[in-house]
Design a protein around this nucleic acid. Sequence first.
DNA 1: CAAAATAATGTTAACGTACACGCACTAACA
DNA 2: TGTTAGTGCGTGTACGTTAACATTATTTTG
Lengths: 346, 346
Amino acid sequence: MKPRITIKEIAKQADVSIGTVDRVLHDRGRVSPETKERVLRIAKEGNYSSNVYARNLKLNKTYHLAVILPEKNSYWVKHRQGVEKAVAEYDFLQVDMHAYSLAVESQTEIEGIIQEVVAAKPDGIVLAPIFLNENSPAVERLKKSQIPVILVDSKIPLPNCLSYIGQDAFQSGRMSGGLLHEGYSENYDLYVITFQMADLYNKTIAARIEGLENYFEEVNNSPQVIKINMEQEAMGYSELIERMLTRKKPVRVFVPNSRSYFLATEMNEVKQELKLRMVGYDLIEENKMYLEDGTINYLIHQQPKQQGFKAIQALHQHLLLNMEVEQQQFLPLDIITKENLMYCEH
Amino acid sequence: MKPRITIKEIAKQADVSIGTVDRVLHDRGRVSPETKERVLRIAKEGNYSSNVYARNLKLNKTYHLAVILPEKNSYWVKHRQGVEKAVAEYDFLQVDMHAYSLAVESQTEIEGIIQEVVAAKPDGIVLAPIFLNENSPAVERLKKSQIPVILVDSKIPLPNCLSYIGQDAFQSGRMSGGLLHEGYSENYDLYVITFQMADLYNKTIAARIEGLENYFEEVNNSPQVIKINMEQEAMGYSELIERMLTRKKPVRVFVPNSRSYFLATEMNEVKQELKLRMVGYDLIEENKMYLEDGTINYLIHQQPKQQGFKAIQALHQHLLLNMEVEQQQFLPLDIITKENLMYCEH
DNA sequence: CAAAATAATGTTAACGTACACGCACTAACA
DNA sequence: TGTTAGTGCGTGTACGTTAACATTATTTTG
């Protein structure tokens, strides 16, 4: 731990007043180039960084944070819990949170909310950028606002994004490949099932599927991969199951989002017959049920609560502590099975 | 976020000086009972808590932390990494860490070190209390010192323990039961293997085994549980394997500490024959190897790096931020299999 | 060349807390 | 009567930073 020089000491060494030093350090101008250089040199040599305590004491500012998340369901409610836990912990540090929630899964709504949030000029934003078109005017406004944004769950390109907090979607796909292929003994069919048309354009889903495919590129007995989008192919569940059965091979299913219970509902009766193994995402109630009854074998847990907590923590570190924040904070790929389901309260 | 009253404001409302308020709040005496009561009332009503920034600015203190961990091996080195990461992150907050390491697994050494540490009067201690007798004079000294201690990995009774950070050993044993019993189809033998005599008195190991047993109390087709301590029974590995084979039942093994690789080394040749399934602890290199080759099926990851990180974080919250810290911080029970081994960098 | 404009720098008062110090007063005791 | 100890208070200063304000030097302009 190197000692740190103070403004006062810099001023003394540079033979100027602390006001001048302050102007240099904050780049407020009105300083001659020579003085500026001298001050900067001494600051650097002295390992200067501003004293967090003095700074915040003086500023005595309440930080306004905006949190934009989808309407509560058992996945997103966890994000909120994490956020609230963090805010409660950092309570004494004068943060003031305003939560916005997306009731409808529509692009219009999220754009409206972003506009509102930007207008309110918070000091930081936590945003789950789902249903959000990268090139929409709202995103433009976000960029222009310069407000630091923490993206959770999904990623979009954003210059003022301070940090992305979530899983590495590609790696989670690769890992799913491993889970599905494990214990290979006979040829099987691998189904990748999506439901809505929108899923086809979702980057996170795409990355998960790419990861899966990447895994099988490196594997010897690669199975046949059958991708089906239910809406696109206008296929019913009974039809799907029929099709699976006629091929007479064990069925392994990858559902790259949280809707694996859609399938599980239909398949739990015939899972023996299908020789089913299924991997899905997220510990929502419906999925948990089918994990317990064995229709779903693995769920990949995205640790939503942790995501929410870390989002606020990142803003705290950036705004209050003036710290560098890691651009990407990948959370561990957490495999949940019937066996450890009851022990994961993270 | 409730607004918080300041000392100055309390002074004004109570019609006394700041100094008096200060004496009341710090219980320095020299205040009449009536004044004291009045000040306390107003402070409480005003939701007073000291301003972290002003406090630390004024105190301008370097905090000395002592970290006592066993000598580096691939498990404990992770603790150190976590500790160092946290110290680096909180660097600007003037913490100064002194690391002590236990070269030998002896009670004498750890007691000597504790004595040394207590004499140095650090502001906080991180301690892995293994090889440490609860009633030893060193522990007494620790108690008397009143220095806040963070216990990691294992727990001992200690009044000045600020927080325990580690796994819930009992629950991890229960979960192991689930992992071993999963997919029950035929009767099997369940071996609980320990190695040294010392293991018989280790509380963490005991709790894990109790958890396992607790699981099987609730299960229908409970297997025969065979507990073996290799040192106590003076048994060789070939002898053990011989014994397992003659019983002609599938073998499932629970190793309640990180030494599962001891067994794996001997058994990886005959694992088919034994119909072996094994659950162990900790991602040390030797274990990872046998996880990959299939001799060990599951490893329970204790997230040592996270433990180290959280330990420092807890001290930071207590010492610098004046926060309440949770007495027990249980880390999630993380199951590592061949499939997700490569993705767990936590 | 003086006045006005601008550039460069200095001064100072907070922010909320901790703590050393000092003042006024009382009571006890020599 | 003076000395001393103790009690109940108030005052002052410092911590490092920020930013408004004041002052001085330098250049520009009519």
